[in-house]
Write a protein that binds this DNA or RNA. Structure first.
Length: 420
DNA sequence: TCTGGGGTCCTAGGACCC
DNA sequence: TCTGGGGTCCTAGGACCC
């Protein structure tokens, strides 16, 4: 088998970079972006990282550092990030037909068609083009496997060029690099596996690569075995290009404040259900199994309550009215008066293609209504049309105190520049 | 006081069948 | 009292990712 050239392109501090597009005055300033409900810090500029602000840290815990150092804070704005992500991915597609959209800010590209002597120039060109066309800075790592390109990308993030390639390096040189990478940095090795390996005296990626295969096979699973192979340059995770339909669809939110009233929770659950239903209709899927869950804050251990209710549908559907009625039925089973609830959610599971299934004849007439609803909402904005039960008081709505409110995918919200 | 959201995959164990 | 063997399918829970 001939070896592949695999590049991982990763946007630098992606959400922060998106916000900076409309606030160029914030380049070189410390900036963070918060998760939904302004809960945790999920994106940090380099300046914010240097101040010691940690990834995933609760906002209230970092508040002191933030205030003292005049860190700029944004609530997350996924409409904006999603749109910018699409532009980045579209740009990358010009450089290789084999591309895997791995996450909102990452993509794998197969660059096997590029000659080794031209490789560095080529990846520098990718980096420059993305920056010019979208304004987003990226780092690029290149190697023979996905796992190694992740390692290369990690190095690219800290060197001057912002790119790093292993293709022209000898095995010895790569081994020296791997000796300096702790196992926890390796893609696929999480907290539990790190602990397991460390307790067996395996601390860096080089030691991991050379671990006894039979011992590992006994003590681990196939994914870890593949990861070890990939560290040694044997590709086990191919690039998966093209769209594959999702298998589950979950919509859940923490409430902006604790909620005790059944009516408020029902309102939230119906809204989550309608969002999920719209998502699956866009992918032409129908639902067979529904879960509705409800919980209090997991940080208040004494009075913790969590319950999830599952309902199997005899006739799979994508119909918002049918689905929200089922969600209400499930919610009524798990709601107990007296708790202060923190979060509710809806999971659509057992999704399948609408085309491959005989749709229940009685539901069929509602397709037109759903189409109309989706079209109206995409033209006039989110929730222009909804169910009567869904939107009244919005007591449950999440906190978003620092939003830039920019939405480049919805015309009325696009910023206007005036030339004088 | 305040702690995100949305995914995938693997495995062990139970249910069920012959 | 003694209590097979092998297969499939499903599910819950755990681990990982961004």
């Amino acid at each position: 088998m001939t070896s592949r050239t695999i590049a991982l392109i990763d946007c630098n501090s992606f959400y922060v970079s998106c916000e900076r597009l409309f606030r160029p005055d914030l380049i070189y300033k410390p900036v963070v972006v918060l998760s939904n409900n302004d809960g945790c810090i999920i994106s940090r500029s380099n300046e914010a990282k240097k101040l010691g602000i940690k990834m995933g840290e609760p906002y209230f815990k970092a508040k002191d550092i933030i205030l003292k150092n005049k860190v700029y804070v944004f609530s997350s704005n996924y409409a904006l990030y999603g749109d910018i992500s699409r532009r980045v991915m579209r740009t990358l597609k010009n450089f290789s037909s084999s591309i895997e959209y791995y996450s909102i800010d990452e993509a794998f590209l197969d660059l096997s068609h590029i000659k080794l002597k031209n490789l560095v120039d080529y990846i520098l060109k990718i980096k420059q083009t993305v920056l010019t066309w979208t304004g987003i800075p990226v780092s690029i790592g290149v190697a023979t496997t996905k796992t190694l390109s992740k390692v290369a990308n990690h190095l690219a993030k800290i060197n001057m060029l912002g790119v790093e390639e292993f293709m022209t390096k000898s095995d010895n040189e790569i081994s020296e690099i791997l000796k300096k990478i702790p196992v926890s940095e390796i893609w696929g090795i999480g907290r539990r596996l790190t602990k397991f390996f460390n307790s067996n005296n395996i601390n860096n990626a080089y030691e991991l690569k050379n671990v006894d295969y039979y011992w590992l096979r006994k003590n681990s699973n196939v994914i870890v075995l593949k990861t070890i192979n990939e560290l040694g340059g044997i590709s086990c995770f191919p690039i998966v290009s093209g769209f594959s339909p999702r298998k589950n669809c979950c919509v859940s939110r923490s409430f902006g404040k604790k909620i005790t009233s059944y009516k408020d929770i029902q309102e939230a659950v119906i809204n989550h259900c309608l969002n999920a239903a719209e998502k699956i209709r866009m992918e032409k899927q129908i639902v067979k199994t529904i879960f509705v869950f409800l919980r209090t804050s997991p940080f208040k251990k004494k009075s913790y309550y969590f319950k999830i209710e599952k309902i199997d549908l005899p006739n799979p559907t994508d119909n918002s009215i049918v689905l929200s009625n089922i969600c209400i039925k499930a919610l009524k089973k798990i709601f107990i008066q007296g708790y202060s609830y923190q979060k509710a959610g809806v999971i659509f599971s057992n999704l399948r293609s609408k085309n491959s299934y005989n749709i229940d004849l009685f539901n069929h007439g509602n397709d037109k209504l759903m189409n109309l609803m989706d079209k109206t909402n995409s033209g006039f904005g989110y929730n222009a049309v909804t169910l009567a039960d869904a939107s009244l008081k919005k007591n449950w709505i999440m906190k978003k105190n620092y939003s830039s409110k920019i939405d480049t995918s919805f015309l009325p919200k696009v910023p206007v520049v005036k030339a004088i």
